[in-house]
Amino acid sequence: MTDRRRVNGPTGGTTPVVFDPELVKNFAASVSKPIRTRAARELRKIFLQTGLTPSASGSAYFEVEQHPSHSHGLARSSTLKITCTVHGPRPLPRSSSFTPNMLLTTTVKFAPFAASQRRGYIRDNAERDLAVHLETAIRGVIMNDRWPKSGLDVVITILEGEDDSWWDTGLSTMSSGGQTPFGMMSILSGCITAASTAIVDAGIDCVDIVTGGVAALVKKSELATGNSNLELVLDPCPSEHDEIVACCVVGYLKARDELTEVWMRGDVSLTPQVGVGGQSEVDSLINGAVQAASAYHAVIVSSIKK
């Protein structure tokens, strides 16, 4: 069912018109598939700011650092830009039944221009899945028993999301089965961090600050085969890797050392592997995601204090 109230744009991506002769000359070489240049344990810098939406009880803006090319300034890889607004706590309608705890509602929506493939205005299954995982991650943090018969709305808008493939080559970072996209994992990690910051900005009592972290197992080279050639990377960008075998995102409470959400996708093994430090692939992924989430905790605390 299409939305007849709006005129949707084209479903496919379009190439911008280029007028600079020097840009045209170096365009083919400058838009090659990006390659990860940072270390496996190195995280991208993030920008986090609160209080950008005065009409909301709390708000936050989350952005991941983007590395442009040196020749013309075009981005070598996709980035992540997320806005979050929190509305409430506010009383529920009189017709609703009494609830001793506050009702939490999460909404995740991609902007139509958030990805290389234009998205529709109606929410799809991927956005609903992200909303369910986000609600699971932040539900255990809020002290919802302090607001009976009240509601809290957390609205996430993704202005730019990381793609699962590089637009110029059409390469897709799928698992060995060729069916699992991993771009949503980094997006969920950013949504958890932005939502937690906005909730604290709204003055809602929480047991701790939850942060999102993501880690992935990738092949060391394009011709590598076997589990011994796997490498654990933190904060992966899907377009920078030829093949991602498995990925994991967590919601982590640093002060309480607890996990509120674990989402893992891909082909993983429970037996210890040499290529991942002698640990099983599951343990290695979870520990890497926890390490990435712990690093973002200090950024959130600094942003809230400002």
Rank of each mutant, 00 (worst) to 15 (best):
D124T: 11
A255C: 05
A195P: 12
R118S: 03
W167H: 14
C248S: 10
P112H: 08
F47V: 08
R90M: 04
D283R: 08
S294Q: 14
E42R: 06
G212R: 04
T2A: 09
A60E: 04
S294T: 09
P10G: 13
Q279V: 03
L74F: 14
N229I: 00
G88P: 07
T105C: 09
G177E: 10
G170N: 05
R38F: 04
A215G: 07
D164P: 02
S116C: 04
L253M: 15
I286C: 10
G177D: 12
I122T: 14
A131F: 08
A29G: 15
E135I: 00
R41C: 07
E162F: 00
N26G: 09
D242V: 07
R256W: 00
P100N: 08
N101P: 01
S175V: 01
D168F: 06
V200M: 05
H72A: 07
F113H: 10
A289G: 07
I158P: 08
S116P: 00
V64P: 01
G9I: 00
A39M: 01
K81W: 04
G12I: 10
S96F: 09
V210H: 04
L188K: 01
G278L: 08
H72Y: 12
E63Y: 06
V210G: 06
K305F: 04
G190V: 05
R94F: 07
N101L: 10
C247L: 12
E160R: 14
T271S: 14
T2G: 14
Q179L: 14
R123E: 14
G203A: 07
